Simulated assay, not measured.
Amino acid sequence: MSLPRKLVRIAVAGAALACLTGAAKVQTDPANPTCPLNPDWSANTTMIFTPVKKGNTKVLLAEGRIDSGAPDRLKKALEANPDVAEVWLRSPGGDARAGNAAGRIIRSNFGLTTRIPAGWACFSACNFIFMGGQPRVIDPGGLFIVHMFTRTGDRQSIDMSVAMGTEATKELIGDIEQDAALLASEDNDFLIRMGVSRKLLTEVMYRQKALANAEDKSTRRCLTQAEVKTYNVANNNE
């Protein structure tokens, strides 16, 4: 009788382990196979800065969408908490130029670490806030997600110009193209100043599609731990 019971116990334990393993498996995004289906980049409609203690270290949690007011709020939060040693980021992105400005503010605070903790995601304009850190840390399981920057997301302006006629539409397209070229130049300059390889733009970011199509819906890319070190996105030795 003891042998069958032992076998039953082993079978039950194996089934339980299989359930736990399955539950822990992260579901992949079919449209963006390098990324999880539901990245944890916060649902805050504007980025919120919260100072907290993590062990003996004071950190500033930066969570939510990056709006035009984020750089000012970040500056005030750092001034009010001069003992902050790290900024932890999770964000779906937002205002590209605000992201660059916030990154420069972080860099002006010498020795301030930026970190993407395990399970958190930093996408789009959040990339540039993260790049301001010195050093920069991406924990295993933390997600640095890139895409091709585009200005065509302003559907209201586009629809209005189309309604006004051909000349208005041409003018808007010209403005978008000019501003996109300027933003690309600003991004390139920013990466150089932050010590990140320009190849991150040419080999990764600018090779992503700006908009999905019927054949290929992928518009974003999650970098591996090897890639973030290759491009000097993460420059720590942890």
Rank of each mutant, 00 (worst) to 15 (best):
A31S: 11
T45K: 14
D95P: 07
Y206M: 03
T50Q: 05
C122K: 07
A212F: 09
V228M: 14
G14R: 01
S108R: 05
A77Y: 00
A101R: 03
T46V: 09
I106C: 03
N38W: 14
Y206A: 01
V26T: 15
N100W: 12
D83N: 11
A180V: 01
R97S: 05
G93A: 10
F110K: 11
T50M: 02
D216F: 03
E215A: 11
G111H: 08
A15G: 14
I48Y: 02
R136H: 02
A70P: 04
T46P: 03
N237S: 11
G132E: 06
R65E: 15
V204R: 06
A163T: 08
L89A: 07
A226F: 12
W88R: 04
N188K: 04
T166D: 13
D216C: 03
T224M: 15
C126H: 08
D159Q: 14
P92C: 11
R65L: 12
D175Q: 15
G111C: 09
A70F: 02
P117K: 01
G93V: 06
N232L: 11
R220A: 07
N237T: 08
N237V: 06
F128Q: 06
M131P: 01
L74K: 08
N188H: 04
E79N: 09
K6Q: 14
A181F: 02
M47H: 05
I129E: 00
A168Y: 09
N32V: 11
A18Q: 06
A96M: 15
L60T: 03
T166N: 14
A180I: 01
A180Y: 01
V137M: 10
S68M: 02
V146A: 07
Q156V: 13
T166W: 12
G133V: 01
K53I: 01
F190P: 00
I176P: 04
A184I: 05
G174R: 09
K170R: 15
G64E: 10
S42P: 09
A234K: 04
I192Q: 12
N109K: 13
G69D: 10
D159P: 05
A13V: 08
I138E: 09
G174T: 11
I116A: 04
A62K: 07
G165M: 11
L89N: 05
F130S: 01
G22D: 08
T46H: 10
L112M: 12
G174M: 12
L112A: 08
L61R: 01
A168K: 08
P39W: 12
F49C: 01
S197R: 03
L182Y: 07
G133Q: 01
G99I: 08
Y231H: 04
N81L: 12
Q208V: 09
T28H: 10
T34M: 15
S185G: 11
F123K: 04
G132Q: 07
R73G: 07
P140W: 14
A181P: 00
A181D: 03
D179S: 07
L172M: 15
K6M: 13
V84W: 00
T202N: 06
